[in-house]
């Protein structure tokens, strides 16, 4: 009796709270990224978006240092297509997406990878571009 009343009223009260009251995540949590050096000539970057968040493929970019370590063309996953009236068809990534980056001239590690990304939440907000930096060396744990 007591429990039934409690949950029915609590349910009513919770239902009255606007749905948009739910928290939006900090970008570091909404868009997680890790990078590791798989081989001296190959970097793997893993993106993990929180449910309800996505990244734009065309706003991923990479810079590798030192300059002698030349980055090849990134191999990007297919992703999903999102259409909007301004930018047309955009490829977006949700959940886990893995990008591989060939390193054209292998050099002594450690390498520093700078990765820019930008994404949005389905709730109707977008986050500004953010920059992540990873220090990469062979046989090390993934950089976070």
């Amino acid at each position: 009796m007591f429990a039934r009343h409690f949950f029915s009223l609590a349910g009513l009260v919770l239902a009255a709270i606007p749905a948009y009251g739910q928290d939006l995540l900090d970008p570091e949590i909404a868009f997680r990224a890790t990078a590791r050096l798989v081989r001296p000539d190959l970097i793997e970057v893993r993106y993990q978006t929180a449910p309800g968040y996505y990244l734009y493929r065309d706003r991923l970019s990479y810079v590798l240092e030192p300059a002698e370590a030349v980055l090849g063309k990134p191999k990007l996953p297919a992703g999903k297509t999102k259409h909007d009236e301004f930018f047309g068809k955009q490829v977006i990534y949700r959940n886990l997406s893995i990008v591989t980056l060939p390193v054209a001239a292998a050099v002594d590690t450690p390498l520093t990878l700078t990765a820019d990304l930008q994404g949005c939440a389905d709730l109707g907000v977008c986050y500004p571009p953010v920059r992540r930096k990873f220090t990469l060396s062979l046989s090390a744990a993934p950089a976070k």
Binding site: M1, F2, H5, F6, L9, A10, V13, L14, A16, I17, P18, Y20, G21, Q22, D23, L24
Partner: peptide, 26 residues
Amino acid sequence: RTVAVLVAAGALALSVGFATNYLMRG
């Protein structure tokens, strides 16, 4: 006692909701 607990639970849920709404969204 049931009513008191229900009111307290309601007030708590509402205040959490309003605070979240106020701070996070608009």
